[in-house]
Design a binder for these strands. Structure first.
Length: 331
DNA sequence: AATCTATCCAACCGCTTTTAA
DNA sequence: GTTAAAAGCGGTTGGATAGAT
C-alpha cells in the first residue's frame, strides 16, 4: 500500500491555493519570516502542511520572482546549462535570477525538449538524434547538418580539430581534466560609470573565482542575506559539485554571488561588491558568444569528432568546429 | 455551441541530504 | 555515532485552459 503524504495523514487541505491562503502566508512571512516551515501553517492559520507552504512560497509568492515568458537569452542559457548539468533544475534555476527550479523544469519539459527534437537534437544527451539506419552505417567522414538551437547553427561533424581556449594566466599549469575552458565577456554593471566589460571565466559550468577576482578586483566578503531564496544554497552546493571540484573554485570554495541581494552594486573603487555576478549572468549573451567562438573556429577549418555536436554560429554558414577534451560535454 | 484534444503549469509525491538533539 | 525531523530536490500528476473539430 502506498505511503500517504503528510497532508493525507493530517487530513490537511491540498490542491490549488486560494487567494485568501496566499494572503495569509504572505502576511505571515512578511511579519515573521518563514523560520521553521513545519510551524508556519499553524502560526499563519493555514490548513496546509509546511511542505506545501514552502513550495507555494518558493514557486509563487516570493517577491523576487520574475514571472512571464522566458527570454531567448534565458532559453539559451537553460539549454547550455542542461548540457553541462543535466536535470539539476535547482542549479540551473540558480543561474536565472527570478526563476524557480519548477518553472525551469516545466519550461524544459513543455517547450525546449520539443524544440530540440524538432531540430534533430536529443534533449537528454544534446547529441544529434540517432537515426537507426544512418547510425549503423555512419562513418567519420560523413557530414551531417542539423539545426541547433544556438543561433541556428549547422552541425557538421568532421575530423580535424580546433581548440578554443583562452585561459587567464591563473589557469596555466592547473589540471583541467574534463572541464571546459571558456572566456566569456560579461557586461558588468558598475555604479557610476555605466557598464564595464570584464572578462570572466567559466569552466565546466562553474565560474572560477580566481579568475573573477583577478579580473574584477578583490571580492570582499559578502554578508549572507537572510532570505527564502531557493537559489543561494543550490549554487553553494554547485561550487562543491563534481564539475567544480578540481581547482575550479578558489580556496574556500565559496561563491560569493550566491548570497548577493538583488540591488547590490560596486563600491567606490569600482570593485564589484554586489549582485554583479548574478547580473552578469543575466546579461550573458550566449548567442553572441557562440557566434564569435565559431567565427574563430571557422577560420581554422575546424571540425567535430563523430558524435560531437555544437550550438551556435551563423545561420547560413556551415560551421566546422571542435574543441579538444571536455567541450564535448556541451553536447 | 458542444465536444474533444493538446498543452501548460501548479502542486504533489517520495526519495535524498542536511541539521539538530 | 545514531536517530529523527526538516529541508531540498527531481519526477510525476492532474486540473485549467486554449485551440481544433
Amino acid at each position: 500500500m502506498a505511503k500517504q503524504s503528510c497532508c493525507h495523514k493530517k487530513k490537511l487541505r491540498r490542491g490549488l491555493w486560494s487567494p485568501e491562503e496566499d494572503e495569509k502566508l504572505m502576511n505571515h512571512i512578511a511579519k515573521y519570516g518563514h523560520g521553521c516551515w513545519s510551524s508556519v501553517p499553524k502560526l499563519a492559520g493555514l490548513d496546509r502542511c509546511g511542505k506545501s507552504c514552502r513550495l507555494r512560497w518558493i514557486n509563487y509568492l516570493r517577491p523576487d520572482l520574475k514571472r512571464g515568458t522566458f527570454s531567448q537569452e534565458e532559453e539559451d542559457l537553460i539549454i547550455h546549462l542542461h548540457s553541462l548539468l543535466g536535470n539539476k533544475w535547482s542549479q540551473i534555476a540558480a543561474q536565472l535570477p527570478g526563476r524557480t527550479d519548477n518553472e525551469v523544469k516545466n519550461f524544459w519539459n513543455s517547450y525546449i525538449k520539443k524544440r530540440l527534437r524538432e531540430r534533430g537534437i536529443d534533449p537528454a544527451t544534446h547529441q544529434p538524434l540517432a537515426e537507426p539506419a544512418a547510425a549503423a552505417t555512419a562513418t567519420t567522414t560523413t557530414t551531417v547538418s542539423r539545426r541547433a538551437v544556438f543561433g541556428d547553427v549547422d552541425l557538421i561533424p568532421t575530423t580535424t580539430t580546433t581548440t578554443i581556449q583562452v585561459p587567464p594566466p591563473s589557469f596555466e599549469g592547473g589540471p583541467m581534466l574534463e572541464s571546459v575552458k571558456l572566456a566569456v565577456e560579461l557586461d558588468w554593471p558598475v555604479a557610476g560609470d555605466g557598464v564595464t566589460s570584464r572578462p570572466c571565466y567559466l569552466q565546466g559550468g562553474c565560474f572560477d573565482m580566481d579568475a573573477l577576482q583577478q579580473h574584477c578586483g578583490s571580492i570582499p566578503p559578502v554578508p549572507v542575506v537572510p532570505s527564502a531564496s531557493a537559489s543561494s544554497s543550490t549554487l553553494t552546493s554547485m561550487a562543491e559539485a563534481e564539475h567544480c571540484s578540481t581547482n575550479n573554485v578558489a580556496a574556500g570554495g565559496n561563491l560569493p554571488w550566491l548570497e548577493l541581494g538583488a540591488n547590490a552594486v560596486a563600491d567606490a573603487g569600482g570593485h564589484v561588491v554586489g549582485s554583479c555576478y548574478a547580473g552578469a549572468l543575466d546579461e550573458l549573451r550566449w548567442s553572441e558568444y557562440f557566434d564569435s567562438a565559431f567565427q574563430a573556429a571557422e577560420s581554422q577549418q575546424g571540425a567535430l569528432q563523430p558524435g560531437q555536436c555544437v550550438y551556435g554560429g551563423k545561420d547560413d554558414v556551415p560551421v566546422h568546429f571542435d574543441v579538444h577534451g571536455g567541450l564535448s560535454n556541451w553536447c
